[in-house]
Design a protein around this nucleic acid. Structure first.
Lengths: 227, 227
DNA sequence: CTTTGTATAATTGTATACAGTTATTTTGCC
DNA sequence: GGCAAAATAACTGTATACAATTATACAAAG
């Protein structure tokens, strides 16, 4: 593909990277499925060079793993790994909430209250789609006001993995939303008060609460070897 | 370089990756220094292809950063980033200590006690070299018994950055060792008792305690723009 | 002297050919 | 038919040539 095919300056590698990542997250490339450079290159209409760049990056993020023989496959699903990811995510969400509590302006608080209201409205009206959407928005806005770029980057990496589990049907919306009802309001309350410790603690618990049920589901999924 | 130059099966890319990483960490490649593919390729006697693989990986780890014009430079030093890294590391060290507390066997405890003793001995005899060595050993052994591969991987990435700050003289040994005297023994104590919460909490504090002084030093370093 | 445009050089991005390795199939033997 | 060895195919690793982009040097105009 000549790079001139797209008007803005986006290198082919990054373009291809996004496409493959989406394939993995959506399950179009399934866990453990083999990935062959030339086939993928042909499918995406690029040469092997930029493709390999994209694959290396995905390997580094562990959405792809390299086998002993040097060949790539889509990373397997495992309850153990999922739990690790959830636990780490909870700590990072906590840290970001702490930083947010330290830096949030009145405007930020107002906006967060708005989002919280949207979540509650969606809940009352039973529109899960919106509940999930605004729930995510709440978190990503915390990332933003925290100013913590390193944590944000790591969280985005972890969230890619979690989204894969979600898209594969291994994390239920009910599980995700069940206990969360008032969590956002509570976290926001401590952020507004500037109580760093409590903001961190409750943001951490918030993530943890949704975890256990999901882990069980993953253990019993078709993707995990049932001995 | 023909790959046959080394007997075992190690791909050139990984070999080159390690070399460049060390150059960055030791300061042989300084912060903000430009990195040119062809020059480095010639210097390391490889073609651009495996070199680019290594560079991409380092870029992903943010030891290298890409400028607007597509060229690479060694990542700058910043007190803000250093603080982020320390904060995140403290949470992950805490998490790993928690997992370790959950899984440690009697053998593990014995070995950890041995390391703790070594640290104390080195301290009494004033051999800082050994103090640092066994201090690291204590942590990496916790990683091991935690079994938490995801956290371990992230910690290793963070530690590369921290080691760069150290090697550049921006983190002092005194700062590192000052308050730590009894920390290891304390953490170990809670691990032995199987007190997950306290193990996590104190491992977290342990990292935090060494941070503030280092941040100040970095702020005033030659590498950071002094406005 | 500065500025602007143009030619040149330096550098990165991409495609492709070939070498080396691993997997698969075929062949020959018992 | 079953097995081992050899041949073949599939795939990844590396080198290199060329295209596209960006930086630099230089000259002419104001």
């Amino acid at each position: 593909m000549s790079s001139g095919d797209r008007n803005v300056r986006v290198v082919t590698k990054d373009f291809v990277y996004e496409q493959i990542k989406q394939k993995i997250i959506t399950g179009s490339l399934q866990p453990n499925e083999n990935v062959v450079e030339e086939s993928l290159a042909k499918e995406l209409d690029v040469s092997r060079t930029p493709l390999r760049g994209a694959l290396q990056q995905l390997e580094h993020e562990e959405l792809l793993v390299r086998k002993q023989n040097g060949r790539l496959k889509v990373a397997p699903i495992s309850a153990t790994e999922a739990k690790e990811i959830f636990m780490i995510r909870s700590r990072l969400e906590g840290l970001v909430a702490r930083d947010a509590a330290e830096r949030a302006t009145k405007k930020d608080i107002t906006y967060l209250k708005h989002i919280t209201k949207m979540i509650e409205d969606a809940e009352v009206q039973g529109i899960q789609e919106d509940q999930v959407y605004f729930g995510m928005k709440f978190h990503t806005y915390l990332y933003e006001i925290s100013g913590n770029k390193t944590a944000t980057k790591l969280l985005n990496l972890l969230n890619d993995h979690i989204n894969r589990y979600r898209r594969l049907g291994l994390i239920n919306r009910a599980e995700q939303l069940d206990k969360n009802k008032d969590d956002h309001a509570l976290i926001l309350d401590y952020i507004e008060k500037g109580d760093l410790e409590k903001a961190e603690l409750f943001a951490q618990d918030h993530v943890n609460s949704s975890m256990e049920a999901a882990i069980e589901r993953i253990k019993n999924s078709q993707f995990v070897k049932q001995n």
